[in-house]
Simulated scan of single mutants.
Amino acid sequence: MKKIAITLFLIATTLLATSCANYKQSSNIIDEKPSSIIVNSDKKALNISENRIKSSETIKKNTVIEMPISVMAKDTTTTKYVKVDVNSSLEEKLNIIINSISQECFNGLPMNVKVFGKNTAKINLVEYKDSQKSRVSWKDDYLNDSTKEYTINTIVKNIIQDNYNGDWIEKVQLYYNDELIQID
Results as ranks from 00 to 15, higher is better:
Lys2Pro: 00
Lys3Phe: 06
Ala5Asn: 05
Ile6Leu: 15
Leu10His: 01
Leu10Asn: 06
Ala12Asn: 07
Thr14Gly: 14
Leu15Tyr: 10
Leu15His: 02
Ala17Tyr: 07
Ser19Trp: 03
Ala21Trp: 10
Ser26Gly: 15
Asn28Leu: 07
Asn28Met: 09
Asn28Tyr: 08
Glu32Cys: 06
Glu32Met: 07
Lys33Trp: 03
Pro34Met: 07
Pro34Phe: 09
Ile38Ser: 07
Asn40Ser: 12
Ser41Val: 10
Ala45Asn: 12
Leu46Thr: 08
Ser49Val: 07
Ser55Asn: 12
Ser55Gln: 12
Glu66Trp: 04
Ile69Ala: 07
Val71Cys: 06
Val71Thr: 12
Lys74Phe: 10
Lys74His: 14
Thr77Cys: 03
Thr79Leu: 03
Lys83Ala: 12
Asp85Ser: 13
Asp85Asn: 15
Ser88Asn: 14
Ser89Ile: 04
Leu90Glu: 03
Glu91His: 04
Leu94His: 01
Asn95Ile: 02
Asn95Phe: 03
Ile101Ser: 01
Glu104Ala: 14
Gly108Ser: 05
Asn112Ala: 14
Val115Leu: 08
Phe116Gly: 05
Phe116Ser: 12
Gly117Met: 04
Gly117Ala: 05
Asn119Phe: 02
Thr120Gln: 05
Ala121Gln: 02
Lys122His: 05
Leu125Phe: 03
Glu127Val: 06
Ser131Lys: 15
Ser134Phe: 03
Ser134Cys: 07
Arg135Glu: 13
Val136Thr: 09
Lys139Arg: 14
Asp140Arg: 15
Tyr142Cys: 04
Asn144Ala: 02
Ser146Met: 07
Ser146Asn: 11
Lys148Leu: 14
Thr151Arg: 09
Thr154Leu: 11
Thr154Pro: 05
Val156Arg: 01
Val156Ile: 15
Lys157Phe: 04
Asn158Leu: 08
Ile160His: 06
Asn163Gly: 13
Gly166Pro: 04
Asp167Met: 06
Ile169Thr: 03
Lys171Val: 06
Gln173Leu: 11
Leu174His: 03
Leu174Asp: 00
Asn177Ser: 14
Asn177Pro: 01
Glu179Ala: 12
Leu180Gly: 00
Gln182Arg: 13
Gln182Val: 14
Asp184Pro: 15
